[in-house]
């Protein structure tokens, strides 16, 4: 009753192939659905004028600014902190109960629903520290949210640098820090950058954290302590309050394109970087 390998092979390829086709199809469906409704709305005018009448008409200019500033602040805070932590964990500690505990902690943090970070940010930054609904509160909360992602991806990238490079560096009289700076980090950079880009992507798309910590002001922010609104939040409010489905889809299209641009830029930067080294 044994099925010949020839047939199990065919069955396996069919099932695996079907799964792939299904996945790609869903992705394309979502993209086409959103872009089909959103692209006709999207124009330079839409991007660079302020909204009017709560967003029922007009564009998304202040929201564009908010969408740039919040992830920017988040990444400025989270990238150095996260990369430094991962370098320390991999290069300067031995695998012990404490490092395992730290790793377990970051894994748990990575799995925490974003709304929890939103609530934390609201209580800690907005109320206790009195920063109010602001770019500062939002950016810091987002930074906390993406920190585990950055730490784990950088850790993997640093760990993947061949041990031989470290040994050679030590054997030529380099200290551990020199080795990290001149050999480990440059070779881990593509992976580290991937983590940072993932972090930027997540913070651009994030809604729950931003509503709780940055508010939803439609004015152009003039300082980091002003409230602001990101595209994800704008989309959510327009759709939920039934203000304007057209503008909601226009915003969604802009959001998708923004994320695509971030990812493509990172991809090409990394490619050029790798090409330059080899």
């Amino acid at each position: 009753m044994r099925i010949p390998p020839k047939y199990t092979q065919i069955a396996a390829i069919t099932i695996l192939g079907a799964a792939t086709v299904f996945t790609v199809a869903i992705l394309i469906f979502i993209l086409v659905f959103v872009l089909e409704k959103g692209l006709p709305i999207l124009s330079l005018n839409f991007l660079f004028t302020s909204p009017a009448d709560m967003g029922r008409s007009g564009g998304i200019f202040p929201i564009l600014i908010g969408t740039v500033l919040l992830p920017l602040l988040a990444i400025i805070v989270a990238a150095p902190l996260g990369i430094a932590t991962s370098v320390y964990l991999v290069e300067f500690t031995n695998e012990s109960r404490i490092t395992r505990l730290i790793r377990f902690g970051t894994d748990c943090l990575a799995g925490v629903p974003s709304i929890i970070f939103g609530l934390f940010g609201f209580i800690f930054f907005v109320t206790i520290l009195g920063m109010g609904w602001s770019i500062m509160s939002g950016g810091l909360s987002l930074a906390f949210m993406i920190l585990p992602t950055i730490i784990r991806t950088s850790e993997e990238a640093i760990r993947a640098v061949p041990k031989a490079y470290r040994e050679v560096s030590f054997s030529l009289g380099a200290s551990r820090w020199q080795t990290v700076r001149k050999v480990v980090i440059p070779n881990a950079l593509p992976g580290v950058v991937t983590g940072v880009v993932l972090g930027i992507g997540r913070s651009i798309e994030e809604t729950a954290v931003v509503i709780f910590t940055a508010g939803s002001s439609l004015l152009i922010p003039t300082s980091v302590f002003d409230s602001t609104r990101t595209m994800a939040v704008h989309f959510y409010i327009l759709a939920r309050e039934g203000l304007s489905m057209e503008n909601a889809y226009g915003t969604a299209a802009a959001l998708i394109i923004a994320v695509l641009i971030v990812n493509l830029t990172a991809y090409f930067m990394m490619h050029r970087f790798i090409a330059k080294r080899n």
Binding site: A164, Y165, V168, L172, G173, N187
Partner: peptide, 15 residues
Amino acid sequence: RKTVGMVFQRPNPFP
């Protein structure tokens, strides 16, 4: 380590 240097099994130039 500078005085007593080492050549390894596999050629391992840095990239």
